[in-house]
């Protein structure tokens, strides 16, 4: 057999493996009872979707909340991470390695190492159980990605174009908007995509800092799965992956592959 045929075969296997775990979720979401050994549900029903999309299910509200938190975290991360990335990318200074380590730490430290201490800290600040608290907490695992992507972007940035703009009379804000931003935009979008996804899939951190009160989608999904409502869990799981897909498809054309190399989260 030709090498290309082998590669095709391997490719088909990979594609199957990537899609398979999502198939039972999709089937469950339309099932009214689906017991062993039936390959397909005894009866189809739209009730899981009806419940998931109704006010009562709390899913729509939770989707909005999860989106709000992820977008706010991403915006905050950009606000803080772009300047930090600029400092790390453009300048060499004493203690830079230490600062890099500190900013990288939350990405490498296993989640459980920070969650309990953060809970204690946020409790003392009165932030446990608040959406704002959850956003601030999400910044911890999110910022390393934004900072490092931006550091990589600024490492290849030529500051002379800013100087030229200034010399032609543009103010700092105008220089940033018209000269700097267009250059760093692809990298910024990559960083934002990762920031969004990291916040979007947080579980334990939200559970701890949200104190059970900030019910993001992963928590709602788990609570239905833990109660044995596989049908509703299936519907929520599909709803849960949609925004990520949409954002990826939307940004795919603008995100450079190089961004992936800078840093990533599992």
């Amino acid at each position: 057999m030709r090498a290309e045929t082998w590669r095709l075969l391997a490719g088909v296997l990979v594609a199957l493996a990537l899609v398979l775990p999502l198939v039972p979720l999709a089937i469950w979401s339309g099932a009214h009872g689906w017991r062993y050994p039936d390959l397909l549900p005894q009866q189809w029903s739209g009730k899981a979707w009806t419940l998931a999309l109704s006010d009562r299910g709390g899913v729509v509200e939770s989707l909005g909340l999860t989106l709000t938190i992820a977008i706010a975290t991403t915006a905050l991360a950009a606000l803080v991470g772009v300047p930090a990335g600029r400092a790390l990318g453009l300048y060499d200074f004493r203690g830079k390695r230490l600062i890099l380590l500190l900013l990288l730490a939350p990405a490498i430290l296993p989640g459980i190492a920070l969650v309990l201490g953060l809970h204690d800290l946020f409790l003392r600040l009165g932030l446990v159980g608040t959406t704002g608290g959850v956003i601030l907490a999400h910044l911890v695992p999110v910022l390393p990605y934004m900072t490092l992507v931006m550091a990589a972007v600024f490492a290849g940035f030529d500051t002379r174009i800013e100087a030229q703009a200034r010399s032609l009379g543009a103010g700092p804000l105008r220089t940033f908007a018209t000269v700097t931003l267009p250059v760093i935009l692809p990298g910024l979008l990559t960083g934002a995509l990762f920031a969004f996804l990291v916040s979007w899939s947080q579980y334990l951190l939200t559970l701890a800092i949200g104190g059970g009160r900030v019910q993001t989608l992963p928590l709602v999904l788990y609570s239905y799965a833990a109660a044995g409502r596989n049908d509703v869990a299936g519907a929520i799981a599909l709803i849960y992956i949609l925004p990520g897909l949409a954002i990826l498809l939307f940004t795919a054309s603008r995100v450079t592959g190089r961004g992936f190399g800078a840093v990533l989260r599992p």
Partner: peptide, 13 residues
């Protein structure tokens, strides 16, 4: 703010 086990949708309803 009533914190209660939320695993059964008829109880929730």
């Amino acid at each position: 703010n009533w914190f209660m086990w939320g695993g059964a949708d008829n109880i929730n309803a």
